[in-house]
């Protein structure tokens, strides 16, 4: 299986503070890669380099290369808008727009002018909501406010919103950290389902979650990538002593 994303010698700085040190890593196509590590280890920062979300921070600076499908996304001629359409993102705290459920999902389709007509838009919205396993819960109230949904439903709505623009990669930044166990389980089942069609990078605090949903796991500490391995190996027989200490709960 080929690599979707290839990161080479990436250093990342906030002003004069270096947040990531010499990261080299490959993320395989249509797999789930989990990123674990203690708070402040740089895993969220790392995730946000993959769709250039850090561009919104004026003092952020990156060296090294990040290639998606063989193209350097930090090359000067990169179309960031097109990049973000290809690399969707789901955030830690669900962030629906102050619009109806329907319009939340339709937003990305509309701004990227992906639909032919209204019927096509309806279809795309329905498909995205179905893919996010939310359809049966909201089909009768698509025109009501997105804020009327429960936390878990809002998060799945944000996933539907991200899927609606037909990305190839979905980045998830602790998508279940604010949810109860049942809602979390739904999100996890969804992640496993989605990897058939998408490459998924998921940051999580929860090691059991990483073990349950991911094919490969990367362990970060203090801005350095300590170890990357297939998830099963990582949790049973890690190469690094640090990984083992973290996984067995000696620190973190």
């Amino acid at each position: 299986m080929g690599s979707k994303i290839r990161i080479k010698n990436m250093d990342f700085f906030y002003g004069s503070n270096q947040a990531l040190f010499d990261i080299s890593l490959e993320i395989p196509d249509r797999q789930v890669m989990a990123f674990i590590g203690p708070s402040g280890c740089g895993k969220s920062t790392f995730l946000r380099t993959l769709n250039r979300m850090n561009d919104t921070i004026p003092i952020a600076r990156l060296t090294g290369t990040v290639e998606i499908d063989g193209k350097d996304i930090y090359a000067p001629k990169t179309d960031v808008v097109a990049l973000r359409r290809k690399v969707g993102m789901v955030f830690q705290k669900s962030n629906p727009f102050p619009k109806s459920i329907y319009e939340n999902v339709a937003y990305g389709i509309r701004i990227n002018r992906m639909h032919k007509d209204r019927a096509d838009l309806d279809q795309r919205v329905e498909k995205a909501i179905r893919d996010a396993a939310l359809w049966d819960e909201v089909k009768d109230r698509l025109n009501t406010s997105a804020f009327g949904l429960s936390g878990g439903q809002q998060q799945r709505l944000c996933i539907a919103r991200a899927l609606a623009v037909q990305p190839e990669v979905v980045l998830m930044d602790e998508p279940a950290s604010a949810l109860d166990p049942i809602a979390t389980q739904k999100i996890e089942e969804l992640v496993v389902e989605l990897k058939k069609s998408y490459t998924i990078a998921i940051v999580t605090h929860n090691m059991q979650q990483a073990a349950r949903v991911s094919d490969r796991t990367a362990f970060f500490m203090l801005g350095k990538l300590i170890e990357v391995n297939p998830t099963e190996k990582m949790f049973t027989n890690p190469d690094e002593k640090l990984t083992e200490d973290y996984i067995t709960g000696r620190f973190g």
Binding site: V81, F91, K93, N95, Y107, I111, R161, A162, V165
Partner: peptide, 26 residues
């Protein structure tokens, strides 16, 4: 909230659309 802007940016919305369709209505 910043998270709302980021949500729109992450969908490929250019800055002016984020301001116009998301921030101003909110």
């Amino acid at each position: 909230p910043k998270s709302m802007r980021e949500g729109a940016l992450a969908l490929g919305a250019p800055q002016w659309r984020v301001t116009w369709n998301i921030v101003l209505p909110a």
